[in-house]
Simulated assay, not measured.
Amino acid sequence: MTSESFEPVTAPSRRTALAAVGAAGLAVALTACSSDDDSSSDSSSSKDTSGSGTAGSSTAQGDAGGTELAKTSDIPEGGGKIFASKGVVVTQPTAGTYKAFSSKCTHQGCAVSSISGGAIVCPCHGSEFSVTDGSVKKGPATQGLPAEQISVSGDSITLA
């Protein structure tokens, strides 16, 4: 044998290993969240940012070249219809007034699933939003549904 000294190699502690795994998981989760935020900011130009709540009102704006969603007769007065494939909810709070909102709940991003009693309902945690302006009627959501732009021309409702 030689007189060299050996330093024993120690494995990382269990606490260190768990912290590293947790940090990696957090990084993945934050990356996924920021990707969602980036994609929603790309479509922010179609949102009503004026705060006036008039996005999607029934004023005839002509066909803006968007996607036809429905006929006005498809949207019940005091209720609405969810267009899951387009990510939008169209409501008719009063006769002849049409509004549109994102169908993505602001609480945790679940898709809303029904409209009942003047409220757009999220099935995940029970948040409810007003068919009139998308505001929160019942939590846990704390922010209303963002308005979407629609136009109504004749009996056709078009997503702008």
Rank of each mutant, 00 (worst) to 15 (best):
S34L: 15
S35Q: 14
S35E: 15
S35G: 11
D36F: 14
D37Q: 12
D37N: 11
D37G: 06
D37H: 13
D38E: 14
S39V: 11
S43F: 13
S43C: 13
S44I: 09
S45P: 09
D48V: 01
D48A: 01
T49W: 11
S50N: 05
S50Y: 03
S52Y: 09
T54G: 15
A55C: 04
G56P: 07
G56L: 01
A60S: 13
A60R: 15
Q61N: 08
Q61I: 00
Q61G: 06
G62E: 00
D63S: 02
G65R: 01
E68P: 15
L69N: 09
A70K: 13
A70G: 08
A70D: 15
A70L: 00
A70M: 02
K71T: 06
T72Y: 05
S73C: 06
S73I: 09
I75G: 06
P76R: 09
E77L: 00
G79L: 12
G79Y: 14
G80I: 00
G80E: 11
G80H: 12
K81Y: 12
F83R: 06
A84H: 01
A84V: 07
S85V: 07
G87Q: 02
V88K: 05
V89S: 05
V90N: 12
Q92E: 06
P93T: 03
A95M: 03
A95P: 11
T97C: 00
T97K: 15
Y98G: 00
Y98N: 07
K99R: 15
K99Q: 11
A100Y: 05
F101S: 04
F101N: 08
S102L: 01
K104R: 00
C105N: 02
T106C: 01
Q108N: 05
G109D: 01
C110L: 03
C110V: 03
C110R: 04
A111M: 11
V112Q: 02
S113E: 07
S113W: 03
